[in-house]
Design a protein around this nucleic acid. Structure first.
Lengths: 225, 225
DNA sequence: CCGGGCCTAGTACCCCGGTACCAGCGGCGG
DNA sequence: CCGCCGCTGGTACCGGGGTACTAGGCCCGG
């Protein structure tokens, strides 16, 4: 049984959601809120598995409410509902920590499907929003970065493509096992690469490699994950 | 009628896709390719609306093939299929210009739905991958008003003076012995401080502590020695 | 005066990281 | 065709790093 909290400032809209949701044997509504502040409080009290959150509300909007719910440490997952005409809010919503983004005029089956996906710990994004998400994602990750420090850049140049990838991974704080997993390599292979990188950039250990990566601009603040 | 090109190095897999797709009255297969080079060429010749692209293939892989198809200017949209979880290759795929990303063991309906979504000009990402994508997105694009810097800065405030000194030293790439010497401490003392710093800033090891130090501005590029 | 931070220091333990060395493979240029 | 290079993988070894726990001395505020 998946528990829900419905957040929307329009009573009629809430009614619609409740009708749809309660028609499903595996879904149940714990409560409703008509503003962001109540939503945050009720999420803390009721600990619903999924919060259906309208973005546009008077006072605290759905995005701010989402951030606070996520920050509060409650296990609730938030499924944000947008009307899609808002572009400036779109990215803020994506960053808010929500587990899903659907358009309010979606088919009922899509909404129900989205609720179950989110309840399972996965995420869902409406196709139209996904398009923009991918475009933005592509923009923000240029194929090759631009080193700012020329001198060190020469050392960067002597690295092979693979070694530069590994150095970037080191710069993100990943350990050898994590690097191996993300690149589908054996840990021993990663060690080999790391060793060569350290020798080439004249670093004693991966800590100094991180510093090197920052000084060359290979990685920048908030470039991690 | 939506036209398709199937790209996979496994004949049996292609057969499965073809069977599924041709069972749909609105979908038709224009051709098949078992490697990236052929895929690029056939996409140019046949101009399918959607390319079903396996990501892992000997020789030119699906990602490189996707990039070249997109770069070629053909109007084809690429739906990438993988058996694996989101990893570096997957991110590379998302950057490659693909319109969709699904796992190969998805339900047939999901695949068909994904094909139609992509054909409509929208994009689709498998729920399990979306979760990771959103996490990554959130990491990469900190909210303007409430950057992770602020959170981090608050963590900085909880550090004692000594701990902040030690963190700075870590950020300069010094090891425990060097820190001990410069501060006239025993190595064991340094370890104690380091351990508490790591706990307070929620870092796994000193490598992540370095990154933290850079992100908070505690240390800056070319600040060492 | 006594509790609580903070700094100091030690011991013991385990694991990850780094090194050394070796080896096979595929591509590419001489 | 051969050699070089880059990439991959493995084994073995050792030292540094991180954790857990303990503990004494210091200063400050209740």
């Amino acid at each position: 049984m998946t528990t829900l909290l419905i957040v929307d400032d329009h009573p009629l809209q809430r009614m619609g959601f409740r009708m749809l949701v309660e028609s499903q044997p595996d879904l149940t509504v714990l409560g409703e809120a008509d503003n962001g502040a109540d939503a945050v409080r009720m999420a803390g009290d009721l600990a619903p598995e999924v919060v259906l959150m309208d973005v546009r509300m008077p006072g605290m909007d759905g995005i701010e409410a989402t951030k606070r719910i996520i920050a509060s440490g409650v296990r609730s997952r938030v499924l944000v509902l947008t009307t899609f005409d808002l572009d400036e809010y779109a990215y803020a919503a994506l960053r808010s920590g929500a587990s899903g983004f659907l358009v309010k005029d979606a088919q009922p089956e899509e909404l129900l499907s989205g609720i179950r996906v989110v309840a399972d710990g996965d995420a869902v994004v409406a196709p139209k929003l996904t398009r923009r998400l991918l475009d933005r994602f592509a923009d923000q990750f240029p194929v090759e970065g631009e080193p700012s420090h020329r001198e060190a850049a020469e050392q960067l140049a002597v690295l092979t493509d693979r070694e530069r990838e590994v150095l970037t991974a080191i710069g993100r704080g990943w350990n050898n096992v994590e690097i191996a997993e993300r690149f589908h390599l054996a840990e021993s292979t990663v060690k080999t690469h790391v060793g060569r990188v350290l020798a080439k950039i004249d670093a004693r250990d991966r800590v100094q490699a991180v510093i090197f990566a920052y000084n060359t601009g290979l990685v920048s603040p908030d470039n991690h994950s």
